[in-house]
Design a protein around this nucleic acid. Structure first.
Lengths: 399, 399
DNA sequence: ACTGCTTTTTTCAAGCTCTGAAATATTGAT
DNA sequence: ATCAATATTTCAGAGCTTGAAAAAAGCAGT
């Protein structure tokens, strides 16, 4: 099927990748441990590690006793080998953040969007300005790459194009637009997917290979991770959980269809349902505080309690669908509304999911809350160039 | 992540696989064409092909002029290298079928199941008997492997266990039970998945890498193919489309939940809905003829027309969910009921899907009918050992 | 028949890569 | 100092692919 030849050189590429990845996620490690973990012979580990050290990607860092014998020299990824930048193009602001190679944050800038439906050109300009800014601030070493998480679906190009209904963007060639201002490697992806990536590397998804990060904000989205990598489908718009029909011919959804999950458990939808049930809007200046208020009032207000109870039902059913279709090891519930609602509703959501999902896949799944919060979109985006580096560490020029 | 070392030997393994697969799906091919298609140098192709020929996996088959020069020698996979057996453990019978390596059918035997809830032991005995039978009948060459498609979810072991609610099987160690009667390599999988595999190789899924085979029989299932291979999830029970909630708190489903897709578009459910609407059961002795009758009567019976129209709506919504979540290139509608209903309803189903799915992923998808019919479960199962052979052609002993 | 021309296959030295075994390095204990 | 215990490095050996050159196999014309 996959008619791609393999040469001896690919062997080295792959083994460099295996070694570096192992080190990245389990540092510090001695050559000897590395040999055991990767299955490579000590000779090869020594050889490859030497190469990586010479290139500056890896550094020796102290040593540790080994009862009686020569001490083990510990190796780590060199955080200063280079920097990566993550960009979060949200619905209200552009955030640009830089990190060292081990994802320690270095600098951040935020730009508010001037309109809820900003034109793409100024946004691209903001991204480029932010890029310059964080690059000039703290940190040394070349920028290895830039990851960009956008709240919309991204058609992987080249050049990548962005379709974002909420921003009013249709097939915006963001990659080409940025390309005019920078030569750095660019990685553009959907924001929900980059957030999912962040949870997989550093949050509640750690250690699993099959997970779904279910995100509830004003809208609803998901990142599906299968076999350790983000599931994209044919044109990388997979995972549109929010617009999955849950209530046939139910409430109208902003996508034009009706009965979508988002029309029931999205923050906006929850508040709408409350308003209809209570006859008056939920208190709070904005969606975010309104949801918080709603959850807080559940103990005293029967109406709020009922709306939340119903929400748990819908959400449980939506999650059960994920369980049945994807059979993940873990479902991670996040997004700002997901966290607020989940803090109270998680046990009920688990029950409702159990009631509706098939027993066998349900038993294989744990349902948990996100650990990183909704601001991790930029972190996850910055992860993309690092992942690329780990997958194929070798094409780039040494520092 | 994937801490697996690679050695020089893997290079040969992979290239053997690439070459053999290319040949399998595009034969006949000359060495020179093979070199172009795989990207391997002529020298390597010659070398690897020679090895495969010596082992009997590949044969030279005629030659073809090449204007003016030395004629090209055509190569093909040797159909007589060995045989494969496919088993279909359905709800009413066990079918065992043998094929040559290129999937030309050689022999078939059927055994009716003595009860709708047969005990596993006699079924295993029937499989083994069928295996002996088809092996002794037509065909020569050793049996390379046996694939088994079971109507239930299969927990890939080892040993593989089968959970089949309709058969009344719970964690049946089918692999171990068969192992006592044969030493052949066994591949056990869900019947919907093997049928999907058959459609991918020889049916409506050919040429795509991302597809969903949606199957409607008495129940409803699906096989999801991503990146060219069947999606299994963490414990290989992924793709349970039929028990996905489509109508929140809707009709009760035999799985214990309610509002499942299966409770609306499964053959049994369609007939139930007709009975409720018409006040009398649909004509026909069994489910299959009843569905056929129902479709046939739609032009004259308003009730039948309405039930079918509603079915198209539910099915369209269910398919739209697949489109949104998996973003496939193609949706293939099959199963005996799916084919009968689809013959009439396909245009309406497409419309309903379009109405409910997101525009972008919908435009990437074509919706078609199965080409192989529901009997291809055994064919698809027999495909499993072949796929294994193509992936790693080398461990086995030469013919 | 023989020669020249064209195109396909095979052959082969070179250059990589991993491995297992042996050699070397490093440190604490005697 | 010397020994013992480990950790690393070195190195010959074997397996791969490659690109170039050589060989093979027809066809056409003389």
């Amino acid at each position: 099927m996959d008619a791609r030849r393999t040469t001896v050189r690919d062997v080295r590429r792959r083994n460099r990748s295996v070694l570096l990845s192992e080190l990245y996620f389990h540092e510090p490690l001695s050559r000897q441990e590395l040999s055991q973990r990767t299955g490579l012979s000590p000779g090869t580990v020594s050889n490859v590690a030497g190469e990586l050290i010479a290139e500056g990607l890896v550094v020796e860092a102290g040593s540790v006793d080994s009862d009686g014998g020569r001490p083990r020299v510990l190796l780590r990824v060199n955080p200063g080998y280079g920097r990566v930048v993550g960009v979060d193009v949200g619905e209200t602001r552009v955030r640009v953040e830089s990190f060292d190679l081990t994802m320690a944050p270095l600098a951040t800038v935020d730009y508010p969007l001037d309109s809820p439906q900003p034109r793409p050109e100024p946004v691209a300009a903001q991204i480029l300005a932010g890029l310059r800014e964080v690059t000039e601030q703290a940190g040394t070493g070349p920028v290895v790459g830039v990851g960009i998480g956008v709240s919309g679906t991204v058609e992987q190009g080249p050049p990548a194009r962005v379709h974002a209904q909420t921003l009013g963007w249709d097939a915006v060639p963001l990659e080409r637009m940025l390309r005019e201002g920078t030569d750095l490697p660019l990685f553009i992806d959907n924001g929900a997917k980059t957030l999912g990536q962040a949870e997989m590397w550093f949050g509640a998804g750690r250690g699993t290979r099959h997970a779904v990060i279910a995100l509830i904000g004003s809208g609803v989205g998901a990142a599906v991770i299968t076999n350790g990598s983000t599931y994209r489908g044919a044109t990388s718009s997979a995972g549109e959980w929010g617009h999955t029909t849950l209530v046939y011919d139910g409430r109208p959804c902003r996508c034009g269809s009706s009965g979508c999950l988002e029309a029931y458990v999205g923050a906006e939808a929850v508040l709408d349902r409350y308003r209809e049930a209570a006859g008056s809007p939920a208190p709070g200046d904005d969606e975010e505080s309104a949801i918080t208020e709603l959850v807080a009032s559940a103990d005293s207000s029967p109406v709020a309690a009922r709306v939340l109870e119903e929400t748990a039902g819908y959400l449980g059913a939506g999650i059960a669908n994920l369980v049945n279709l994807f059979n993940p090891e873990r479902i991670v519930l996040g997004g700002w509304a997901g966290l607020t609602l989940g803090a109270r509703l998680l046990p009920r959501v688990r029950e409702e999911t159990a009631r509706r999902a098939l027993r066998h896949p349900y038993e294989q799944t744990s349902i948990e809350l996100c650990r990183l919060g909704p601001d991790a979109v930029a972190l996850g985006a910055a992860t993309l160039p690092v992942a690329d580096l780990l997958t194929d560490p070798g094409v780039r020029s040494p520092a």
